[in-house]
Design a protein around this nucleic acid. Structure first.
Lengths: 342, 342
DNA sequence: AATCATTTCCAAAGCGCTTTGAATTGCGAT
DNA sequence: ATCGCAATTCAAAGCGCTTTGGAAATGATT
């Protein structure tokens, strides 16, 4: 059943039927009722492809996820983010178009998305410190919102970010206040903007108390469990082990825990741990009271909000770039305690 | 730049240009060359929306993910699966359309997808024991492939599944061979087909040795870390604790580990653990040698293959339903050992 | 040089919807 | 009855592509 058939059936023009269905005012309420009823009765649904062509809109938002050996975009965090974004999309009749691309062809992917009109806008994931995707998208004229920020980028653009500097400053301060002297940082890849900022927050806290940075206590890589484990092993087996460790995600914190417990040490006593917790739905930081003391900010909420910001932009409800900086909350769990006295 | 502009520019008809660009034979090689060069020079890309309408194909595959409090589809496993599927799609010029829907409206989502022509086919995730989505999709005439199976479903359909019965039978046998008498199962939701089959494999192994099922040793729920932790605590603190535990995923196994170590017990000595390992890229079961002894099958590979099966079906390279049953491999890690003698 | 089969190209008809600009209808006011 | 204005409805023109059915050009064959 298509529009022509339906309108023939009703003895009305396609125009009227289309308007009736799309809620335009220039159609009598009685006819609108007749039309919607007939549409329901015959299970009429407008063809999306035709609608797209006619309106020039696809009602879909692009997410391009680069695939490489180097850097894993497709991770836990990503899936919770899109769950949130997807919720927002659904509420507004959009859905999400995900393209997986070789990371060397990422720029091309955005170009194609824009020039072929596959999507009405895109979300940019995992911005680097100086991310060339941003000027590219501006130039392409494709609406977009960045989840995170790109520090060295001068072009104005919309973003939503967690205040990573403040979160890691506070986390570090929290440990220093507990008397810890040697606080380690197991960070994400520092080409990523968020990781760079987290290190900055950590470094600021140390600098405030005139504690020198120790290269033997800071590491940066893909945030996996084995990475957390391996680096913790190294550090604990070295001459001057840290008494506290901060990780950029719950996942490496699991590895830290494994390494600590394997050595017969107690978490929260011998070694304190704080992690950044994205509040992933299927990897909760404990049920009820948190296992790890953590700087917490829901990535799912971020997804929801980014989606809304982008749709607002697409539909012209906002004009210029919009920024949102969220503070993480510092939740105290069982993984931190006063520094052990030697 | 659209097709008409390009053809005007070249002094050719739209027909010829279109054919030249799409590799049809009825165009001289010289003209084809001229056309492709002009297309590149002017950065011409055919409009996807128009193409869709004309061809009746969207070159996209739908994934509908139900959102509910009850059951979390959007999980780690899902994201690795779509990474794999996405890779296959990209290779064939497809991409993925993800709709997040309220789980009560899931059936509607499939209907809409089919009748509005938003996608060329869908992948069905997380089939239940008796999943009504399958007959619905057959009736709608929308091509689909199921990741997993639905036992009580009589309609024929294409699927790719891991041999869960065999995997859990072998895992249980492995533990029984090591002398374990009390083997616990921490399973996923048993309305899910895979979980039901895993329990069956577990039960078969016990039955083979005339060991009665003990309700105090089997649990079934959402596969989270806290769930693994909580149930392990219960069991270890009870009168007759198990000496081995099998979990349906790496995630609850982490909780099991936490509970075991918290009690000063040693994994692989006091308590053995086997888990099902989906070989998630960002949550690897150790680097190098596996931490947990595990039944392993890559969900990413499954995604890749499901994508290919579906595109084969859409493009008519296969006719009837296709089935693939993958055997998981049992990899021995550090989490299992002989049963402790009391 | 005429004939016929190929090759190569084109005009025009969709695909199913939205939207413009105009035509028709209804109805109170003249 | 008639006019004027608003409320309804409609015919037709796109949106940018593919594809059908033919026409024109080319080349091989007699």
């Amino acid at each position: 059943m298509n529009l022509r058939e339906l309108s023939d059936l009703l003895g009305l023009s396609q125009t009227t039927v289309s308007r009736a269905l799309n809620g335009y005012p220039e159609v009598k309420e009685a006819t609108r009722k007749r039309v919607t009823e007939a549409a329901n009765a015959h299970n009429y649904h407008p063809n999306t492809r035709a609608k797209s062509l006619a309106t020039g809109r696809t009602m879909s938002i692009g997410h391009v996820i680069p695939l490489s050996s180097q850097h894993e975009m497709v991770n836990c965090v990503f899936s919770d983010f899109i769950a949130g974004a997807g919720e927002s999309y659904a509420r507004h009749g959009y859905d999400m178009r995900v393209s997986v691309v070789d990371d060397l062809k990422e720029a091309d992917a955005y170009k194609t998305l824009a020039t072929t009109g596959k999507v009405d806008g895109v979300i940019v994931h995992g911005p680097l410190v100086n991310d060339e995707r941003i000027p590219l998208l501006v130039q392409l004229g494709l609406p977009f919102v960045v989840h995170g920020r790109s520090s060295d980028c001068t072009t104005p653009y919309s973003w939503l970010d967690v205040n990573n500097i403040s979160a890691f400053k506070r986390a570090t301060d929290f440990l220093l206040d507990l008397g810890h002297k040697r606080v380690a940082l197991i960070n994400g890849l520092e080409t990523m903007d968020f990781a760079m900022r987290r290190r900055e927050g950590y470094a600021n806290a140390l600098a405030d108390r005139d504690i020198p940075l120790d290269a033997a206590l800071t590491y940066s890589s893909e945030m996996t469990e084995p990475f957390g484990y391996a680096k913790t092993c190294e550090m604990l087996d070295a001459a001057e082990p840290p008494t506290a460790i901060i990780t950029s995600s719950l996942i490496p914190a699991l590895g830290v825990r494994r390494a600590v417990e394997e050595r017969g040490l107690t978490i929260g006593k011998d070694v304190s741990i704080i992690c950044f917790d994205d509040a992933l739905s299927y990897l909760p930081n404990g049920a009820g009271s948190p296992i790890f003391t953590a700087a917490r900010s829901s990535v799912r909420d971020a997804g929801r909000r980014c989606g809304e910001m982008l749709m607002d932009q697409i539909e012209g409800r906002t004009s210029g770039p919009v920024h949102e900086l969220w503070e993480a909350e510092l939740v105290v769990g069982q993984s931190t305690g006063p520094a052990p006295n030697r």
